[in-house]
Amino acid sequence: MFSKRPAGPVVVPTVSDSGHWSIPRGLIVLLGAAATVVAVAGMKSFSGILGPVFLALMLTIAVQPIQDWAQKRGWPKWIGMLGALVTVYLILIGLVASLVVSTAQLATILPEYSDKMGELLNQARTSLADFGVDTQQIQNTVSSVDLTKVLAVVETALQSLLGVLSDLVFIFALLLFMAFDGMSIRSRLGILAEVRPEISYALSTFASGTRKYLVVSTVFGLIVAVLDGGALWLMGIPLPVLWALLSFITNYIPNIGFVIGVIPPALLGLLQGGPWLMLWVIVVYSVINFVIQSIIQPKFVGDAVGISVTMTFLSLVFWSWVLGALGALLAIPLSLLVKAVLLDIDPTTRWADILISGPKEVPKEVPAEVPEESPKEGLPESLEKDLP
């Protein structure tokens, strides 16, 4: 009637030695995702403050080598701080002044193209009628097209870009305070490396990667701006300096920066010389920007960024949604900061770099050379003397 209990010890489930139940991994992931949503919502709510703060941080990192160079030469720390501060101030003032003047020039020439817009619409109406398109359909299509409104949208976009740098007092104050902190950042990082070496490693990696990215993007942005501006000047496009400046700024926007930069000069080319001139503007822009931004520049940026193309595009979309236009410009440095704080700071999570970084060449293992054994090895000293 009763079954016999199998022989052997009975396994009884026990809790851990500490007496606490471990949290399931799925619950940890869920809690982490919920905390991420809350953090992102908070950043979006304070985007008006976080945007300028991140901009000031990026600019401070970019000019920090000036302070390091002055300190290595034995100069007083305040000389390096003053040099870095003046450099970044001149960059911001020059950029804002150029945008203000160019945007004002664009506002003055837009009314001149109203008659040319009407001529283009009449030509489009005639061409569509020649292809047998219904007259009512032509009227509905042409009436919905207003190129002056499109250019007005472009002007509004430039003004919003100018608004990113409009709060100069706040940014200048941040840069001043960060420059003061930069005088002692080297010694503080040295102390941090002794106390918390992993945190020091993550911050140093972020700073060096960000600095390399900004330097490379600035150099190639200047090259693209000069070539684009010269080509537009030769083709007779109005305001070539403005569009060259726009090319320089959009070079910091990954993946789609070139598309944003080509739209305004292409529209002006359409109004200035018709569809053929617009086509030439697009072709010249495509050749210059494809060769430089898609072939040459990624080879120099890849080592500094360490983020794949897909992650670069996703970071652009994410930071643009969180911080607006400034988030698009600083998408890569901000992603590097998040990567340093969440992944590089912990050796157990650095494996994620393999998934989010670009393709890397795995070095081939070279077999180690096995040294030949000497015939004297292992022999007594008396016999070693007799061998050659």
Rank of each mutant, 00 (worst) to 15 (best):
S3Y: 04
V10F: 05
V11R: 13
V15N: 13
L30C: 08
G32P: 00
A34I: 02
V37Y: 12
A39M: 15
V40K: 03
F46Y: 09
I49N: 11
I66K: 09
D68S: 13
D68L: 09
Q71P: 04
K72V: 03
P76R: 07
T87Q: 08
Y89F: 15
A97S: 13
T103A: 10
E119C: 02
L121M: 14
L128E: 07
A129M: 12
Q136Y: 09
I138N: 08
L147S: 06
K149I: 13
A152V: 12
V153C: 08
L158E: 02
L161H: 05
L161T: 14
L162C: 03
V164A: 11
G182D: 01
R186G: 08
L192F: 03
I199S: 10
L203T: 01
F206V: 04
S208D: 08
G209M: 00
R211H: 14
V219D: 05
I223H: 07
V224W: 00
D228P: 07
G229W: 12
A231K: 04
I237F: 09
I237C: 06
L239H: 04
L239D: 05
A244N: 03
L245Q: 07
L246W: 04
L246F: 14
I249K: 02
T250G: 00
Y252C: 04
G257I: 11
G257Y: 06
V262E: 01
V262W: 02
A266Y: 00
G274Q: 05
W276Q: 11
W280A: 15
Y285R: 10
F290C: 07
Q293T: 14
Q293M: 09
Q297P: 03
I307S: 02
F313G: 15
W319P: 08
V322N: 00
V322A: 01
L326K: 12
P333M: 00
L334P: 00
L336P: 03
A340V: 02
A340I: 01
D344H: 07
R350I: 00
A352T: 08
I354E: 15
L355S: 09
I356N: 01
G358P: 05
G358V: 04
P359H: 04
E365D: 11
V370M: 12
E373W: 08
L383N: 01
E384A: 11
D386S: 14
